[in-house]
Amino acid sequence: MRVPRRRREAVEVNLTPLIDVVFLLLIFFMVSTTFEPRQALELVLPESETGVAAEASPVTVVVTPEGAYRLGDRALAPGALEAALAQAAPRAREHGLVVEADGRAAHADVVRVLDRAGALDIRRVRIATAKATHSEAETP
């Protein structure tokens, strides 16, 4: 007697849920990763022997050697410093403002930032410096 063989159905793995999970993980890691936008800037901060480490502030103004300004990760057009600082003023009043000025930047460019901050009633202003690399014995 002949027994008819059943045809086995081909086993298929549904990859759609796997792809969904991979994309969700990718999105999660992209969103949760912190990026350091200032790595591209080559600032030479002025040195300070008496400087103290301070907590990071969400409002940071960078002054480049050429006199250009950046607020956070956003480059500012000439003359846009006051408007950008005014927009960030509530956070700066609460958390403080950090000025990262290159050591080669003109004094007038740094004073301009300090002046605008004072006009907007931002009172907690800190200037970022680098730790001094030479000892007191070397100082004249």
Score class of each variant (00 low, 15 high):
5 R>K: 10
6 R>T: 04
6 R>N: 06
7 R>A: 14
8 R>T: 13
8 R>K: 10
8 R>I: 09
10 A>M: 13
13 V>N: 08
13 V>M: 09
14 N>A: 10
15 L>I: 11
16 T>K: 15
17 P>L: 05
17 P>C: 06
17 P>R: 07
18 L>T: 14
19 I>D: 08
19 I>M: 08
20 D>I: 06
21 V>L: 12
22 V>K: 12
22 V>W: 12
25 L>F: 12
26 L>P: 09
26 L>Y: 11
27 I>L: 14
27 I>K: 12
28 F>W: 15
28 F>S: 10
29 F>P: 04
30 M>Q: 14
30 M>A: 14
30 M>G: 10
32 S>Y: 14
32 S>Q: 15
32 S>L: 15
34 T>R: 13
37 P>Y: 05
37 P>M: 02
39 Q>D: 09
41 L>K: 02
42 E>F: 01
42 E>S: 06
43 L>G: 00
43 L>E: 03
45 L>N: 02
47 E>D: 05
48 S>F: 06
49 E>I: 04
50 T>E: 10
51 G>S: 06
53 A>F: 03
57 S>K: 09
57 S>H: 06
58 P>L: 05
58 P>V: 02
58 P>Y: 07
59 V>G: 00
60 T>P: 02
62 V>W: 01
62 V>S: 02
64 T>Q: 00
66 E>Q: 08
66 E>W: 00
67 G>K: 01
70 R>Q: 11
70 R>S: 07
70 R>V: 03
72 G>Y: 05
73 D>R: 08
75 A>D: 09
76 L>K: 09
77 A>G: 05
77 A>D: 10
79 G>Y: 14
83 A>F: 03
85 L>N: 07
85 L>I: 01
87 Q>C: 12
89 A>V: 05
92 A>N: 06
92 A>M: 08
92 A>R: 09
94 E>I: 14
95 H>P: 06
98 V>I: 09
98 V>W: 03
98 V>S: 02
99 V>F: 02
100 E>K: 07
101 A>N: 07
103 G>R: 11
104 R>E: 00
105 A>R: 03
106 A>M: 02
106 A>H: 07
107 H>Q: 09
107 H>L: 05
107 H>T: 06
107 H>R: 08
108 A>I: 13
112 R>W: 00
112 R>N: 03
112 R>Q: 00
113 V>T: 03
115 D>I: 01
115 D>W: 05
116 R>P: 04
117 A>V: 01
118 G>L: 07
120 L>A: 09
120 L>P: 08
120 L>W: 12
121 D>P: 04
125 V>K: 07
127 I>W: 04
127 I>C: 00
128 A>Y: 07
130 A>I: 00
132 A>P: 04
132 A>V: 02
133 T>K: 05
136 E>V: 07
136 E>N: 11
137 A>D: 12
138 E>S: 13
138 E>K: 14
139 T>S: 15
139 T>H: 15
140 P>T: 10
